[in-house]
């Protein structure tokens, strides 16, 4: 069939009309899919630590013991070889710039629980040459111990000292092995994983559940109605060295 000029113009016009109709129809269907996306917006796991509540129970190490037991964290006496996921330092050491000459001595010496900050822009993942550590979509800075070659670049990159290297076989230094979680081996780096294995089963992190004072509030920072977001809205919170631009997911209520 030979296409005449009249035919061609008519076809072109109809095609343009159809394309235009599609553009007009699409916005009508858009809100439905947008609403569907809103309910599945990416999670951003984060934690708020209430230091006031923590100070009330001095010397309590329930969170540390729960974490160590859940993750087979070895207890090595030699400080040069020690491995830590959740540990404590004095307030004065953690927040040196938050002190003044008149601060009560009691609070400067109070212990602050420390863990991986699961930064928004983590320096540790950027330097890893094998992508053994990376940032998951839900905000957790995850490790793949199968892939870790033990170069310790991440240990050097982390400004919070959250990463530990296994200088020796950790197994002899674990009092009681939890068979559900792997131990590590000599030559890999480890740190807090925000209990991603517990989150996968719908549980909260071990420290959150173990704390008798309910010091830790864990939740989705992307959800404006979540528990940590409510706390952050109502009370003044600080983060560890926010000026570094790492964007910690862990905040402290002083």
């Amino acid at each position: 069939m030979k296409i005449t000029r009249k035919h061609f113009l008519r076809l072109s016009g109809l095609s343009l009309l159809a394309a235009g109709c599609k553009q007009a129809v699409r916005p009508a269907t858009q809100p439905v899919s947008a609403a569907g996306n809103a309910s599945q917006q990416p999670i951003h796991w984060g934690m708020v630590i209430d230091l006031g509540k923590c100070r009330e129970k001095e010397g309590c190490k329930a969170c540390i013991h729960a974490c160590n037991a859940a993750h087979n964290v070895p207890q090595i006496a030699d400080r040069a070889h020690e491995v830590k996921w959740l540990w404590t330092e004095t307030f004065g050491t953690v927040f040196p710039s938050a002190q003044n000459n008149f601060a009560p001595q009691r609070d400067a010496a109070a212990m602050v629980p420390l863990l991986c900050n699961h930064c928004a822009d983590p320096p540790c993942t950027r330097v890893c040459p094998t992508q053994a550590t990376w940032k998951r979509d839900d905000g957790i800075v995850m490790m793949d111990w199968h892939r870790c070659i033990g170069c310790r670049y991440c240990v050097a990159a982390c400004p919070y000292g959250s990463r530990s290297f296994n200088f020796e076989d950790p197994r002899p230094s674990i009092a009681s092995i939890n068979p559900d979680f792997p131990t590590r081996t000599k030559g890999v780096v480890e740190k807090c994983n925000f209990c991603e294995e517990r989150l996968a089963r719908g549980l909260k992190p071990a420290c959150v559940d173990a704390c008798p004072q309910h010091v830790f509030t864990f939740g989705d920072l992307a959800d404006t109605d979540s528990e940590p977001r409510q706390l952050l809205r109502e009370r003044f919170a600080v983060q560890r060295e926010p000026e570094l631009g790492t964007g910690p997911s862990v905040s402290y209520l002083v």
Partner: peptide, 11 residues
């Protein structure tokens, strides 16, 4: 098995 546990051996 350098890292993963045999639950029966642990028990």
């Amino acid at each position: 098995w350098n890292c993963h546990n045999d639950p029966q051996a642990v028990a």
